[in-house]
Design a binder for these strands. Sequence first.
DNA 1: ATAATTCCTATAAATTTATGTTGAAATATT
DNA 2: AATATTTCAACATAAATTTATAGGAATTAT
Lengths: 151, 151
Amino acid sequence: MIKLSTKGRYGTRLMVNLARHYKNSNEAVILKNVAEEEGISIRYLEQIVIPLKINKLVKSIRGAGGGYTLARKASEIKLCEILQALEGSCSLVECLEDESFCEKIKTCGTYEIWKGATDLLKNYFERLTLQNVLDISDKKIAAAKKKGKSK
Amino acid sequence: MIKLSTKGRYGTRLMVNLARHYKNSNEAVILKNVAEEEGISIRYLEQIVIPLKINKLVKSIRGAGGGYTLARKASEIKLCEILQALEGSCSLVECLEDESFCEKIKTCGTYEIWKGATDLLKNYFERLTLQNVLDISDKKIAAAKKKGKSK
DNA sequence: ATAATTCCTATAAATTTATGTTGAAATATT
DNA sequence: AATATTTCAACATAAATTTATAGGAATTAT
Ligand code: FES
Ligand code: FES
């Protein structure tokens, strides 16, 4: 129906991975590890992390022993912020952000429809934090392990 | 944040346009007119209308005097159907439709997040019909005309 | 026959997705 | 202090997909 870009998908998983290894903002995770753990090309991750850094969601530490780390605690990072950083605009269609984008905006019936859907999404992602995602992930990992043992 | 493709945007406007001119499924509208009214390239519209036809949302009448028309009344066409026809899949990420798409699905925390968002959207577009969109559009056109007169 | 229209196929342009190459900065080691 | 190593940073390029344009064949009404 409506597709989340790979930037959005990979970038969010990158953030969850950083969150999983986060202790304090001085202990960094190297991108190579993230790439291996998540099965994503490291070269591509390097590009994806840039907007996250620009938007102050991650911190980079250069040189040996360096890497990336969350800029704040996972519970203080909203999913909405991550997606906005990665996808730029925060709406289903351009005209919601830039009214001059569509010429027929004054009479276009779909405008209100896309706006309604965008508001639903914004509200949803506004309520979720990176910590929420990490919790879901941890629970799934635990369940997978348990199942593996009992077999 | 999450982008609706031009296929989805243009295709929905095409459907609204057909709905506006719909009287019965024998009186067809030619694509050239839709293209002019909506400000979309006719060549591109020709491609966009194909999936709508395949999914039995519009009927085509070939030859001179032909054109396109809704296959049913606007009130009987759900927005969800239109988007599904145009965008193919009906979910924010592939893995919701095809579990083999993501390898880490068993432990991925974002899966549930994207599923939640997809369900919100599906539900929203399931409740809306093409007639709803047409009504909004008609209301906006009337308001625009009134404003124009009173000036 | 002619004109109007959809239908089909090809191709071009733009954007997104992904990989490769080199360089710069910080750190660890000697 | 010098050197080597590790890591991010920047730029370039390739592949795939989406977006858009073009030409002409098939079909139908007049
Ligand atoms: S005004 Fe932008 S899609 Fe209608
Ligand atoms: S994004 Fe598909 S399983 Fe995580």
